[in-house]
Nucleic acid binder design. Structure first.
Lengths: 332, 332
DNA sequence: CATGGGAGTGTAAGCGCTTACAGAAGGAGG
DNA sequence: CCTCCTTCTGTAAGCGCTTACACTCCCATG
């Protein structure tokens, strides 16, 4: 097995307490003793067992994060920001993806047992488990979820951005819209987006269900919709991947974007910028979301903040060519 | 604190050993006793402390993965495959990104202390630490790295794919090439790609250094190159992100791709397909790479496989429009 | 020249679990 | 009726560390 603190102590001719004190810098240690200990540590290349430390300290120095799926760029970006900050704060990060897994309950509980707190994306963990975790006093930060007592929540602004986007599109003079990726859960990001756009566009917009938030499902839904009798002039997509699928479908049907059909996305993932036409979309501060989540969680864990706080990060409309050139801006 | 096995034992009126046996199914337990225990467990909603279990069992039931950077789609995809399989195998996964971090040594050692084994991308951990980890008998799987004794390695095929790509381009009749993202380390993926293309194209290809493997750095390098006196006819990029940057640069300079300039990438990330022109690239089985890494690591840990094994996954040339239409295939 | 106090160190009690070992109880075989 | 097994359960020894507490020196103070 590994070398333990006992061997170091023996080699240095001191007690394990002294070794621990030397290494952690807690309590006084004579210079000479310190040298002996450090020498022994060096010679045996001793590294304290994380398990022993954690058990004795009563903390893991680790955080978890639960997301539905790592496939898309969205969660990745959030994770990126999260890992970076967590690591700065001296915490390891454990990840768990729930996508298509049966025993989510067990997986989440296992994760919960390995960390001092965790970040959870909305819609990934069954509500009763959420309640249970909160009851167990596990520090929790939820992402993209409506506020919940006993835990912190963090999300990006959806509603106002949706209105702004809808307003922008209306300014183009379009008359018929479809919203791809209809809301499936109350309090969900997408449901907020839908609420925002439909508030502005009223009956001119129709929700259309996609099965998932992927390129494939966007493609399939768009293909069907664009072939139908009443083809809308604009496709407001609930995220960029769906929008990219819609772009593919339009291309396949020989429809020019934005001249025959305007398309917009949401998130501003990398591919949105590189698609041609480039996607008009709403930029979500994904990385920032992850970073903030890590900080909030840390505050929860170290007790510097009340369990319940709710923040909303602002978003930004990014106008590219897929929504068409605004009449007023058109070059002469 | 949490409820412990002692409380359960007390409530059920049995010893902690019996509780443990009941829960783990090791050793015989009378039916009646089992019921009492399960009832107590239920009432107290007891979950065994992972720390206690791990310490007693002498294993973490967790794996680590170290990558340079989570920003690009490449590592994400690998991670996705890795997490999925690791989770199936009953192991939690801890992630560590080394990008721009000073204390990589400490971070990696800390990670090593939390897991039963880990997967490490080439070029992320200093060589002496690698040696140290191997000496400590930590099960290790390296990704995209030349074989090393004492650890398993896994990578995608580079050289043959590079030759195939170069051959394909030569078939277009192009005469001058540049390789964007020149090799910086021996045994590195990119150095293998360079070796492959230069073997085929000889003096017709010139390596050009990019600072990073990002869109921005590809854009910058391409811009400079394309403005120079001897503009190459083809840009073979070391990865898709660099290629996307090159596409942006070409667009900015008013160069038509593929008519004025051919561009190719590597990896087949999502944006490669959605870029216009869509990128010709080499598809790497990224997810499969992660999945295989998880399985190999598991075999290493459970002792079912020798420490040293070296596998190479095959890749596939994906021809899209960015490299130009092949003369023979041109429509009449 | 006692004496109070700091510095340095060791002892031992956990932290929450698993499991080898021993012991108790009860039934079957002789 | 007495062994000998089985079956079940409990005791206690770790696993590797941290840290409260106690103890020993030694020096400065009065």
């Amino acid at each position: 097995m590994e070398v333990t603190i006992y061997e170091v102590a023996q080699r240095a001719g001191v007690s394990i307490a002294t070794v621990s004190r030397t290494l952690r810098g807690t309590g006084p240690v004579a210079d000479k003793t310190r040298q002996k200990v450090l020498k022994a540590v060096e010679e045996l290349s001793f590294t304290p067992s994380r398990l022993g430390v954690s058990l004795a300290e009563g903390r893991h120095a680790a955080n978890g994060i639960v997301f539905p799926n790592l496939a898309g760029p969205y969660y990745t970006e959030v994770l990126l920001g999260y890992e970076e900050v967590a690591s700065e704060l001296g915490r390891s990060v454990l990840i768990l993806s729930t996508k298509g897994r049966g025993q989510v309950r067990d997986l989440v509980k296992d994760l919960a047992g390995r960390v001092d707190g965790m970040v959870v994306f909305g819609q990934t963990v069954p509500e009763d488990l959420v309640t249970e975790l909160i009851a167990a006093d596990l520090p929790l930060v939820f992402l993209s979820r409506e506020p919940i007592p006993g835990a912190a929540t963090l999300r990006s602004e959806n509603s106002a951005a949706a209105r702004q986007l809808a307003g922008h599109l209306r300014g183009h003079g379009y008359d018929s819209y479809a919203f791809l990726g209809a809301p499936y859960a109350v309090g969900d990001d997408v449901s907020e987006r839908w609420a925002g756009v439909s508030a502005v566009l009223g009956s001119a917009i129709e929700p259309v269900l996609t099965t998932e938030y992927t390129v494939e499902s966007g493609y399939a839904a768009a293909l069907k919709l664009l072939r139908s009798r009443h083809r809308p002039r604009v496709l407001i997509c609930s995220d960029d991947e769906v929008a990219l699928g819609a772009l593919l479908a339009a291309e396949e049907l020989g429809l020019a974007v934005p001249d025959d059909l305007a398309v917009t996305g949401w998130d501003d993932i990398m591919a949105a910028r590189h698609a041609r036409p480039a996607l008009t979309t709403i930029r979500q501060p994904m990385r920032e979301l992850g970073a903030r989540a890590a900080r909030t969680l840390d505050e929860l864990i170290t007790g510097g903040r009340a369990a319940s706080s709710h923040h909303i990060l602002s978003t930004e409309l990014v106008v590219r060519s897929s929504c068409g050139v605004h009449p007023l801006e058109e070059s002469p």
